[in-house]
Every structure is written in structure tokens, then in C-alpha cells.
């Protein structure tokens, strides 16, 4: 049975960032930003779901992130993912792409046998497009980046159309393979109302911990048992569950360091003001012509 694992990420809505959300060490305090499902990852999930619709199998979505990242895992369930995992631990915080890929690859190994790993080409907060390839390298499997369409799947090979600079190419890869997907590939399906009803109460471990913290009448063990029984527990992987070397995770496992962060300060412009009327605009045209800027 084909098994696809989809890497998804919750990202800060980068349109709404101010200096107030930066921490002293130069990293962003994501807790203070509005968070959204990285669109290309949603497209990757859609592609995995369509692969399942056509060829059968199972789709697992995983994300590494803090407690509230479970939001997008619930969204994955609403779209049709068969199972989801939250990978969450304080020790994973501050990870660059290399440390992230390391933890993701260890989590994938833990989840079990797989044939495909799907991911969005890049996430809007860093635009690096590095986590996909680096996860492939850590897993020791081939990669196809910038995928647009899956053309064929046979017993041992998958054929994929991908974008290249100035054109397209068709690649055939052995399985397992990691595939990163560009945003135009497919349109993600809407949530299924039935699945929203079924899973809106799903909670990951940090969600339950938060509930317990705020209510002295609740006990963690009982709560966990209850959610598991109701099939609403999102399995959560921490350093205890993974075979990771802690020094390779998070900030300590990240070779790239933020040395300096400067807020962008705009000098007040010394531009010439042009009135948006016939005289002003004609004057502008004349000036540009005299300077031989336009013909």
C-alpha cells in the first residue's frame, strides 16, 4: 500500500511583522505573529491526496513546531489526511534548515515505511527551499524539486513533470523519493464538512498540557486516555520518542547563525513631487525627454 508522508509548516504571515516581534537573539518570536498554513505545503498535501485517490494508499502529514502548529494538522485532517503527527520539543526551537531536516528525517524514519515524501517547494517565511532537499539527503533518497504534475506511478517507478529554468522536464525516479511541489501544481481541495465535524476537537500533546495548566480539575493522564479513546489525539513526537542526538537539533544543531539584524529604516525621500494632473505630468514627460531617459 502506497504511503505518502507530507511535510507541512505553519508560517508567520510575513505581511504583518514589526520590530516588536523580534527576540534579542535575532530570531522571530513567532508566538506574536498571525500564523497560517504555508500554501505550497497545502498544495503538496493535495497532490498526495490525489495520488491516493488514483492509486490507493495512505497519507500522513507531519509538522515540526510549537503547540499552536497543531492548527494546521487539524486542517490536514479536514482535507483528508489519514493520520497526522506533531513533532514538538523545546529542544527543537531555533532550528535552521539543516537542524529541521535532521529532526524531520528522524521522525519520518520513526513513522515507518514510506514511498513518497511530499513538501512544498518553500515556505514563505524564509523562502529558502532548503528543507525538502536536505530532508531527502538525510534520508538518503533521491529528490524531485519543483514538481508540477505526477504523470505515472508503476510498481517501482514514479514519473513526474517538473519546472526548470526556461522550461519543463520529465523525470522518472525510483521509489522512495522526496518530491517538492510548486504552487501552481494543483488547487487544494476545500475542507470536508464531515471531517471538520469529526476532527475539530483533535488535540496534540501540548494542546492537552495547556488545557491542564489552565484547569486544576483536569489530570493529564485521564485527559490523554480520553482523547485517545475518542480517536482525537494527535500523536506527538518529542526528543524522547526520536533517536536524535540533541546537539544536532534546534539552535545548537544549526550551522547558520544570525549575527546581526537591522530593522529597515527608511530615509525620508528627497523625491520631486509631481501633481497628478495634466500640467504636472506633462512637465515630468518633458523633463525625462530632456534628460534623454525616454524618447
Amino acid at each position: 500500500m502506497w504511503h505518502s508522508i507530507v511535510l507541512v509548516k505553519q508560517v508567520p504571515d510575513t505581511a504583518n511583522i514589526s520590530g516588536k516581534v523580534m527576540k534579542e537573539d535575532g530570531t522571530v518570536n513567532r508566538a506574536k505573529l498571525p500564523a497560517i498554513f504555508n500554501h505550497e505545503d497545502k498544495v503538496a498535501l493535495e497532490l498526495a491526496l490525489r495520488l491516493k485517490d488514483t492509486y490507493g494508499g495512505k497519507v500522513t502529514a507531519i509538522t515540526m513546531g510549537p503547540q499552536r502548529a497543531s492548527d494546521i494538522l487539524r486542517e490536514c485532517l479536514y482535507m483528508g489526511a489519514d493520520q497526522v503527527f506533531l513533532i514538538s520539543d523545546r529542544k527543537f526551537a531555533g532550528a535552521d534548515t539543516l537542524a529541521t531536516s535532521y529532526v524531520l528525517s528522524e521522525a519520518i524514519k520513526k513513522i515507518g515505511e514510506f514511498h513518497f515524501v511530499f513538501a512544498g517547494r518553500q515556505a514563505i517565511d524564509g523562502d529558502t527551499a532548503q528543507v525538502g532537499p536536505q530532508t531527502a539527503e538525510k534520508l538518503g533518497i533521491p529528490q524531485i524539486t519543483y514538481a508540477e504534475e505526477i504523470l505515472d506511478l508503476s510498481d517501482s517507478k514514479i514519473t513526474v513533470k517538473r519546472k526548470i529554468d526556461g522550461g519543463q522536464e520529465i523525470l522518472q525516479s525510483q521509489i522512495p523519493v522526496l518530491i517538492t511541489v510548486i504552487k501552481d501544481a494543483v488547487t487544494p481541495r476545500p475542507f470536508s464538512a464531515k471531517r471538520v465535524m469529526a476532527y475539530k476537537g483533535a488535540k496534540a500533546l501540548p494542546d492537552l498540557e495547556k488545557m491542564v495548566e489552565g484547569n486544576s480539575l483536569l489530570y493529564m493522564d485521564k485527559l490523554l486516555e480520553e482523547y485517545k479513546e475518542r480517536n482525537l489525539f494527535i500523536p506527538t513526537l518529542t526528543t524522547d520518542d526520536l533517536d536524535v542526538e540533541v546537539e544536532r537539533c534546534g539552535l545548537s544543531g544549526s550551522p547558520t547563525k544570525v549575527h546581526n539584524v537591522e530593522s529597515v529604516v527608511l530615509a525620508s525621500g528627497s523625491h520631486k513631487k509631481i501633481e497628478p494632473n495634466k500640467d504636472g505630468l506633462t512637465q515630468l514627460i518633458v523633463e525625462l525627454m530632456n534628460d534623454h531617459i525616454i524618447g
Partner: peptide
């Protein structure tokens, strides 16, 4: 930072455990 560069560089950086900054 072309399609080729963005396919190759991260894989190489991971293999050699190097840091890599994009764009």
C-alpha cells in the same frame, strides 16, 4: 539561486554539514 542551484546547494550543504544561506 536558479532551479538547479536551489536543487543542488541544499543537498550538498546537508551532505557536508555546511551552513547555507539562500538568496
Amino acid at each position: 539561486a536558479t532551479v538547479i542551484g536551489r536543487d543542488l546547494a541544499p543537498y550538498v550543504a546537508s551532505k557536508t554539514k555546511s551552513g547555507l544561506t539562500a538568496d
